[in-house]
């Protein structure tokens, strides 16, 4: 079991968008996939999942559709919209930029100051 890290709201949204970008998923599937692609290192808090999903749908970044799950049960599948794709792209860029920036700050040795 991975550690349950407290994620900022924005980060959770980004992760959900990424998870859904790899293919339509229902809510539980999103949870599993994030866990999976993080190499079992990351587990999302269950209480914040559905509010986040509904919020993203409210903002038009993901779209939902009722379908059938593997065991023939009715489930709501989420997929990425064009706007969501754009959002994911820009958020990823921002994250990478921020990470690089912070990393370079942390790499500074005493001589470079």
């Amino acid at each position: 079991m991975g550690k349950q890290i407290d994620l900022l709201q924005g980060t959770l949204d980004m992760l959900i968008l990424k998870a859904v970008s790899l293919g339509p998923l229902h809510g539980y599937g999103v949870l599993l996939r994030i866990q999976q692609i993080s190499g079992e290192q990351l587990e999302i808090q269950q209480g914040s999942l559905y509010p986040a999903l509904y919020r993203l749908e409210h903002q038009g970044l993901i779209a939902s559709e009722w379908g059938e799950s593997d065991n023939k049960r009715k489930a709501k599948f989420y997929s990425l919209t064009a706007a969501g794709r754009r959002q994911l792209h820009s958020e990823t860029e921002k994250w990478n930029r921020m990470a690089a920036l912070i990393a370079s700050i942390l790499r500074t040795t005493s001589e470079e100051v």
Binding site: H26, G27, Y28, Y50, S69, R73, K74, A75, K76
Partner: peptide, 12 residues
């Protein structure tokens, strides 16, 4: 919808 989705999650 909320009810269905939540139940599905718990069952899964």
């Amino acid at each position: 919808e909320m009810e269905t989705e939540v139940r599905f999650h718990i069952e899964s």
